[in-house]
């Protein structure tokens, strides 16, 4: 379906689930831990995990600048949960260094602690009429979006999925379900010129 290799940031978190999802769609993937791993990839996924942990390992292994320049050069990127936090330009009440690539403001742990984590059938019009089973785990919310950002889904008035050109931010976990539609939607962005 897609002839490129999708890089999955593998510093910490649920990176294997994204790789399994891609394999199910017939797409090759590679784990990214160091700058050299970024060669030859045609798209990047930043998975869920702990954003503070991933941010520190991005800095320690000199991945920040390389990823920013690749994505600014047009590399499609999907961020889920912690990935969305790292993609955002502004993180509320936090000094956490992010990639600052998408014109978003995010709030971490915005639904509360783990006992407030939940799943819900979420209408996502770009994925079709059937709602998407969205799994929110200590999830962030997108509390602000710039003019170039297209809001793709909201929950209780808060943005939970948004796109800016070839950058896609999702605050829930499509990789924890068997539903391939969101990954397919992301892979279709690779074809957009």
């Amino acid at each position: 379906m897609v002839a490129v290799i999708v890089g999955v940031l593998a510093l910490q978190g649920a990176f294997r689930e994204h790789q399994l999802m891609l394999a199910g769609l017939g797409v090759s993937s590679a784990q990214i831990r160091k700058p050299a791993d970024l060669q030859n990839i045609g798209a990047l996924i930043i998975p869920g995990g702990e954003s503070t942990t991933i941010s520190k390992l991005l800095a320690d292994y000199e991945l920040f600048d390389r990823i920013v320049s690749l994505v600014e050069g047009g590399l499609p990127v999907l961020g889920t949960c912690a990935g969305t936090i790292l993609l955002a330009k502004e993180i509320e009440d936090s000094t956490l260094p992010g990639l600052g690539l998408m014109d978003l403001r995010v709030r971490r742990n915005a639904f509360g602690r783990q006992v407030d984590s939940f799943e819900e059938d979420l209408p996502v019009p770009v994925l079709g009429d059937e709602p998407f089973r969205a799994v929110f785990i200590r999830a962030p919310q997108i509390t602000g979006a710039g003019p170039d950002v297209e809001v793709l889904a909201s929950y209780n008035g808060r943005i939970v999925m948004a796109r800016q050109n070839k950058m896609l931010a999702v605050t829930f976990h499509p990789e924890l379900t068997a539903d391939q539609r969101l990954h397919k939607y992301f892979l279709n962005l690779l074809e957009v010129s």
């Binding site: 593998a10 510093l11 910490q12 978190g13 649920a14 990176f15 294997r16 689930e17 869920g48 995990g49 702990e50 942990t53 949960c81 912690a82 783990q114 006992v115 407030d116 984590s117 939940f118 799943e119 819900e120 799994v135 785990i137 200590r138 976990h173 924890l176």
Partner: peptide, 21 residues
């Protein structure tokens, strides 16, 4: 309706901790 404390949500947090200390 939002469902809290499901098996997916419980095991899901553990999935997010993977590769970590």
């Amino acid at each position: 309706m939002a469902q809290k404390g499901t098996w997916t949500v419980k095991t899901g947090l553990a999935e997010m901790l993977k590769g970590g200390v």
